[in-house]
Write a protein that binds this DNA or RNA. Structure first.
Lengths: 166, 166
DNA sequence: TAATACTCTACTAATATTGTCAAGTATTTT
DNA sequence: AAAATACTTGACAATATTAGTAGAGTATTA
């Protein structure tokens, strides 16, 4: 339960790729797609949305690609997710577009509201810079591996089977 | 995004109904269904699952119904949700049944893991007792209304239209 | 002018959620 | 015993959402 859409996930990863791109140079969609193992077409949708939200800019022509519209520390994960998946709304009651229907709903409604705010607080406090450096307070307490790309036969195996234990 | 299933929502609300039922007396499914405005058939599924998870017990025969299997303070919202919707898994990487596929996944993977733990921590700390009394620390800071049932023409309106602004 | 790259819209397939239905079993009161 | 009440179970259908594809088009620069 409480699944994050692949759109949101890919979006964050794409933003990470752009952020970690060679300083100032646009990152081509093709390159991002290759690294993320996502189709170019799907990524186009995602990046298009992010561009319209003002999180990235694009440069056309050969050598073109995508750039962050702001410094990594000015772009939160929350912004990225909201751009792609709309506002966080655990329940219909919390959704701005809907309304609280049930009369005795206020008890659990407050619960979901509190949780939603907790989640948003977390996501808004976390920025691309944190992902780049892994130094955010919220992530500390976790063992933080280096950002080096890790490749093992193990992963290759998982890639083929798709799932384990299922 | 990050929607909670109706099953989980109804489950929590049903548990709340049972918890607030007349001391020691079983609460009939019919009564719960009426209060929650959910079909009896759907609720049966939900309560059945909760019973199998050991969160409630049932009493048959006229005057029968459902009872909490433990004291309200011993039943967390997290338990209820996990019982109905399975483990919280924001992403496939976090799902015990799946695996982390992408080689460079560790950066965002940690992010989702940290968020997931934050959410679980919240839900496991929150109990039915907190819902009954509204005194949990996590809920404080929220304006906390009385548990009185609130009925306004406003709500009745929403009930008919279903959604607003959509 | 050709290559590269981004833009946009529509559409489909897969999956999960949400909920219904029907038949049956157990318990207690009268 | 019989009737009323209540829980049990499993199959199934409708709906919504997600995920991803396809294809035609526009812009930019070497």
């Amino acid at each position: 339960m409480l699944k994050l859409s692949t759109k949101g996930q890919y979006g964050v990863r794409a933003m990470f790729e752009i952020a970690s791109g060679h300083a100032g140079e646009p990152v081509a969609i093709k390159e991002i797609a290759a690294r993320q193992d996502v189709s170019v077409a799907y990524l186009e949708q995602i990046l298009n949305t992010l561009r319209k939200s003002g999180l990235i800019t694009s440069v056309r022509g050969p050598g073109g690609g995508y750039l962050l519209a702001r410094q990594p520390e000015k772009i939160s994960i929350g912004e990225i997710l909201r751009s792609l998946d709309g506002p966080i709304a655990l329940t219909a009651c919390q959704d701005p577009m809907e309304g609280c229907v049930r009369a005795d709903g206020c008890v659990t409604s407050l619960l979901w509201k509190a949780l939603g705010e907790k989640i948003e607080g977390f996501l808004d406090a976390m920025t691309l810079r944190d992902l780049l450096t892994g130094k955010n307070k919220q992530l500390s307490g976790q063992k933080y591996p280096s950002l080096e790309i890790e490749k093992t036969g193990h992963h290759a195996f998982l890639e083929k089977t798709g799932k384990i234990g299922a």
